[in-house]
Design a protein around this nucleic acid. Structure first.
Length: 119
DNA sequence: CGGGTGACAACGT
DNA sequence: AACGTTGCCACCC
């Protein structure tokens, strides 16, 4: 049975591999996972793959994948969001509201919009 | 073939 | 920090 391996399946496999490669205690954004899987620009595909993998691959560390800037992709307060936050916290990742705290490089980069808002 | 949709990202206001 | 827009790509009607 020479199963034709569709590109979709090949991509899904690459994405799962990239997710499995995320070390315990750290996390990556969808875009970054896509890039590491050799699929730059396919962040949305990562989301789709993880959603479907949820039913079939309970071992996959899906909780280590966040939206840009550590934001949790699920609606704040939803069961899924709380589940993900709990799993991250359990690995020692600091969480704040509906996000995983990203290591800051410096404190001065946000002046721009902070101004607009604040005043 | 055209339009809607989504566990996204980047940018502007 | 919070929305709205646009770009993006794979899928499904």
């Amino acid at each position: 049975m020479d199963e034709k391996i569709s590109t979709a399946d090949r991509r899904a496999a690459a994405i799962c591999a990239a997710v499995r490669a995320i070390k315990r205690g750290s996390f990556l954004s969808y875009g970054e996972v896509a890039r590491r899987a050799g699929l730059p620009g396919r962040a949305r595909l990562v989301g789709k793959v993880l959603r479907e993998a949820g039913d079939a691959r309970p071992k996959l560390p899906w909780h280590r994948v966040t939206a840009a800037g550590g934001r949790i992709a699920f609606p704040a307060g939803s069961a899924s969001a709380r589940r993900q936050l709990r799993l991250l916290a359990r690995e020692g990742i600091e969480t704040r509201g509906n996000r995983a705290v990203v290591k800051r490089r410096s404190a001065g980069a946000r002046s721009l919009d902070a101004l607009l808002w604040k005043l």
